[in-house]
């Protein structure tokens, strides 16, 4: 790639992934993948089933220790964070990378508001003298809690769940749960928001609302958005940068327009006969 410096994600990356590999026993789920995620972009990671997208995600968000590779989060306002060295909770607490899950993981027995309060645990905990101080009236928990409620209220407004703040998260309809999970992740004030198939199971209307939400996050918040998506139409409409994985390897990387016409991508998504495959291999 000759004109690398012209791409927004190469000019100002928030996350740089270099030579990432992940093996499970003898199986290679991710094989030497490198890419960058732009600070002001919506970046999409796509690929057919079993391409290793979720594994890449789990490596970035600390749920797996990568077998090899470097994951660098450029914090801009401080020293960089080397994600492969952090344990799971530090990824969010220190590097401020938040994530959602493919099969939604809310706290179903807690209210919507409580879910968002738990997300602000670390700040609140410090303000309350690690909770045990607050039993004796130490710390400034009252004030901090008020601020936390305000932030929660703001995000509930953004995702349209303000009227349901006091309902149990587990009782919400599916689409609301998806949006709540995003709101909860945003309440950790992340630099990078990782979404694992956020549009899965949403209807067309909900999907449009989601797109608007993600664009708003990109434009108004200081948060980069990185998402895994299956639904090509969503990806093509909102993302600024698309990375394509197949069989654990990166096969394409560029703007939606570039990726759309890439023959490797077409082959991976539409299937490819042996001859076509050989022809692709032979390409310079």
């Amino acid at each position: 790639m000759g004109g690398a410096n012209t791409k927004s994600w190469d000019r100002d990356p928030i996350l740089t992934v270099e030579h990432l590999s992940m093996h499970f026993g003898g199986i290679t789920a991710v094989d030497d993948v490198s890419f960058a995620v732009g600070r002001k972009d919506i970046t999409a990671l796509i690929g057919p089933n079993g391409a290793g997208k979720t594994t890449v995600f789990n490596c970035i968000t600390g749920f797996y220790k990568p077998t090899e590779g470097m994951l660098t989060l450029d914090a801009k306002d401080g020293p960089p964070h080397f994600l492969e060295r952090l344990t799971d909770y530090e990824i969010n607490a220190d590097a401020r990378v938040a994530r959602t899950f493919q099969n939604i993981r809310l706290f179903p027995g807690m209210t919507v508001l409580e879910n968002l309060m738990v997300a602000q645990h670390n700040g609140l905990s410090r303000a309350s003298g690690f909770s045990f101080g607050a039993i004796f009236g130490l710390g400034r928990f009252g004030l901090a809690e008020k601020e936390a409620i305000d932030l929660a209220r703001y995000w509930l407004g953004q995702v349209g769940l303000l009227p349901r703040a006091d309902e149990a998260a587990g009782s919400l309809p599916y689409g609301d749960q998806r949006r709540l999970e995003i709101a909860r992740a945003m309440c950790t004030r992340p630099r990078l928001l990782c979404l694992d198939e956020p549009a899965a199971g949403l209807n067309a209307k909900e999907s449009d609302a989601l797109n608007a939400l993600l664009q708003a996050i990109r434009d108004k918040e200081d948060t980069a958005v990185f998402l895994i998506e299956h639904d090509m139409s969503v990806v093509m409409r909102i993302s600024d940068h698309v990375i394509v994985l197949d069989y654990g390897k990166k096969i394409a990387d560029g703007t939606p327009g570039e990726v759309r016409i890439d023959p490797h991508v077409i082959a991976a998504y539409l299937g490819v006969s042996d001859e076509d495959g050989a022809a692709l291999e032979a390409r310079p």
Binding site: E90, H121, S128, A134
Partner: peptide, 26 residues
């Protein structure tokens, strides 16, 4: 009192879903 403080909420959140807790930096 602890239930209404961060640590108590974190306890209950952990009971509900430990993995989600870790993803939130707890």
């Amino acid at each position: 009192r602890l239930r209404r403080l961060p640590v108590g909420r974190a306890w209950e959140a952990m009971r509900e879903d430990e993995i989600a807790c870790r993803s939130l930096g707890i």
